[in-house]
Amino acid sequence: MARVATAAAHRTGRGFLRDIVRVPDNIVPNFFEPFLYLLAMGLGLGAYLARIKGVRYIDFIAPGLVATAAMFGASFEVTFNCFVKMQFGKIYDAVMSTPLTIEDIGLGEMLWSTTRSLIYGTVFLAIASSFGVVHSWWAVLTPVAVALTGMMFSAIGLSFTAVIPLIDYYTYYWTMFITPMFLFSGIFFPLDRMPNWVQVVAWFIPLHQAVDLMRALILTGDIGSAAAAAAWIVVVTGALFVVPMNLLHRRLVK
């Protein structure tokens, strides 16, 4: 535990400097993506739709887009950015010749990508709230939910990064994992009138749980279903937490 704390301090207080120096190049562009969806789908498509589950279409999709912002924020970082640092820049090799170990580096990357998702998710929510999409006081807990979501996708993405030999393999990650989740996790249409098997499958989809969590906090205020989804994410993240560190160790310590 002391080691984890040291490692966390190293990255949050110190190592982040590298990434913070790079904020203008690296972080700013990704802010726009969820807004494009909010505007195009929420206002554009929403103008042609009747109410969905009793609310405006933009109210329905905005919480899901908060979850998406968290997922994308973490995923970009632990996939392309980490792979480039590790494989092309050999940055991890450099850091491993300092008192830090590969486990510290993995943990640092997860904390930083979680921080990124926290930034994206909360800024997105703040701006989206000006469209009147926040309907529950439970929304104050959104940053916690965003951080949980970000941590979960950090662990998943970093594990993938630790095992792939070539950067091209991200095509599989994005087109077969991230994009289908984005489309079929109940962000743009409700899943509860789908056949039963769809809902069973959906229960296992990480983003679907995050969408349920955000929607409960921001739209419905149904704290029971928020707690269930949060518990799912905590359990899965806890189970996956050390996986990327072990895989990175196997890859880089020879």
């Binding site: 590298r18 790079r22 190049d25 820049g89 050999k90 940055i91 090799d93 450099a94």
Partner: peptide
């Protein structure tokens, strides 16, 4: 092998 941080 050179492992300087090219981005800073």
């Amino acid at each position: 092998e050179n492992n300087l941080d090219e981005e800073v």
